[in-house]
Nucleic acid binder design. Structure first.
Length: 471
DNA sequence: TCTGGGGTCCTAGGACCC
DNA sequence: TCTGGGGTCCTAGGACCC
């Protein structure tokens, strides 16, 4: 706990949905749902308009469609969100060298370490200025929480939503927390919440009254100790700028359960290659390979194997994953497969290690040269799912809902929907003053092509939009 | 039309070593 | 001969977060 509210938590409002509304004028003020559009998709983000229908994150998409059949349903466009996220993180970086991103749309900032605030008044001014700058640069709104600790800053930003700022004065935390639900505390999810409820504790005050020993007895050593501290308003966790990656993983849920062992095997191999691609991009190699299988009944199994040394070799990971698959029963069907690597080592270090190993091998008795690994081309099309295969038969190009397109005659627009050989496009861009016109094309129209996301805010000719520098 | 994808941290048991 | 703890690594599963 610090004496001044100099821990800042920023949370962008309905981030993915808000970015889509900024990109698509016709969706502003309308219910927008971003998430997986397949039969097993879930909601990633719902706009505030969509939340009024009861739609929320992690809800099955099918349920959302029942609640709001006329909402706009869009697939996530991470390239766009990453661009906006970088703009936001840049603004945070001007406040302090200590910025801890939690996701694309959330971060802690240590204002004291940055010298950008030392007391309540300066913290509040900094927070308000940040919100103005974010709106100017990205066109989106974010909510700010300010407090003397991470936990309280986060609770404050939650209270500030949407488009607000809340500052919790140090010294008031216990009376503030007391009546709140235990679920407010970080680390208390559905299971712990239910556990505590059965023990008669629903509010944070109930937790402090129960005492640390009782909580440890109920939920275990580490969890109980931290729960008691949090409930009492004690949280000394520092804002940490650089956190090391501990694992890299990829997984796929299939539209229809897989039954064919051969098919399961080839999917595992493809996942292994995708995982290694990501591993290499992150500059790591790793020692432990993990295979994950979710069965038809949602039961989930993992199997892992630790190698003698770290690898980023696609063949090695593919074979390890294949071996792990042999030890698992997949009768009844497979809903999801995943491959991960943990026990990571910096690539630079690994590079030397691998080089040394290769040298040793070259000097070995056989003198044999290893077969080269299959080259993984970054721009290669993703393996195609069952739904794609259906589209394939009609020789259709793929037009994901919400993606930007450009037409030779009509200009910039986005895919409103597609099916049965037709694609519907709305011709508008982020800076359009009025909702654009809608036209329908054949999916094989040569004048129509997918394009990169456009900037959400007009860039003035003299450079970057947004806040002026000091002076 | 029930339940995504990418992570982190903790627990608990067995192996193994000192 | 019997019995001891402690520490670390590995594996599997589960809770939680965004």
């Amino acid at each position: 706990m610090r004496p001044a509210p100099t821990v800042l938590h920023l949370d962008m409002d309905a981030f993915f949905a808000a970015a889509e509304q900024a990109a698509k004028p016709s969706l502003r003020g309308k219910p927008v749902v971003v998430g997986g559009l397949g039969p097993r998709g879930v909601v990633a983000t719902a706009s505030y308009e969509a939340r009024r229908f009861g739609i929320h994150s992690a809800m099955p998409m099918a349920q959302a469609r029942r609640l709001a059949p006329n909402a706009a349903y869009l697939v996530p466009r991470f390239a766009l969100y990453r661009t906006v996220s970088e703009q936001v993180m840049d603004l945070l970086g001007r406040l302090s060298p200590l910025v801890e991103p939690l996701s694309l749309d959330e971060a802690f900032v240590d204002l004291e370490a940055g010298g950008s605030a030392a007391d309540e008044a300066s913290a509040r001014a900094t927070g308000e200025r940040l919100r103005r700058d974010i709106r100017a640069v990205t066109g989106l709104t974010g909510s700010v929480g300010l407090a003397g600790s991470k936990m309280l800053a986060k609770i404050a930003s939650e209270q500030a939503k949407p488009d607000g700022l809340v500052l919790i004065e140090p010294g008031t935390e216990r009376e503030l927390l007391g009546p709140m639900s235990v679920r407010t505390l970080p680390g208390v999810g559905p299971a712990t919440g239910e556990h505590l409820r059965r023990a008669g504790m629903t509010t944070i005050a109930d937790l402090t009254e129960a005492g640390e020993d009782e909580l440890v007895r109920l939920v275990g050593k580490a969890h109980g100790t931290s729960l008691y501290r949090m409930a009492s308003g004690h949280d000394d966790r520092p804002v940490v700028a650089e956190r090391e990656t501990k694992s890299v993983s990829v997984e796929d849920t299939f539209d229809v359960d897989l039954h064919d062992r051969v098919r399961v095997r080839t999917e595992v191999e493809r996942l292994a290659e995708r995982c290694v691609r990501r591993l290499r991009e992150s500059g790591h190699s790793g020692r432990t390979i993990v295979l994950k299988v979710r069965r038809y009944d949602f039961s989930t199994l993992t199997r892992s194997e630790t190698l003698r040394g770290p690898t980023d070799d696609p063949g090695v990971v593919r074979e390890a994953a294949g071996r792990l698959l042999e030890s698992l029963d997949t009768t009844g069907g497979v809903r999801l497969l995943g491959v991960g690597v943990t026990g990571l080592t910096d690539y630079t270090q690994e590079d030397l290690f691998a080089q040394a190993a290769a040298d040793a091998e070259a000097a070995g008795a056989t003198g044999a040269v290893d077969e080269p690994d299959p080259v993984v081309v970054p721009g290669e099309p993703e393996p195609r799912s069952d739904t794609d295969a259906v589209a394939d038969e009609a020789a259709e190009r793929h037009w994901p809902a919400g993606h930007d397109v450009r037409h030779a005659e009509f200009g910039a627009g986005w895919v409103q929907g597609s099916g049965v050989g037709r694609v519907t496009v709305r011709f508008e861009e982020p800076t359009s003053a009025v909702p654009g016109r809608v036209r329908t094309f054949r999916t094989d129209d040569p004048d129509l092509e997918l394009s990169e996301p456009l900037p959400l805010v007009a860039v003035p000719p003299d450079g970057e939009p947004g806040p002026r520098g000091p002076g």
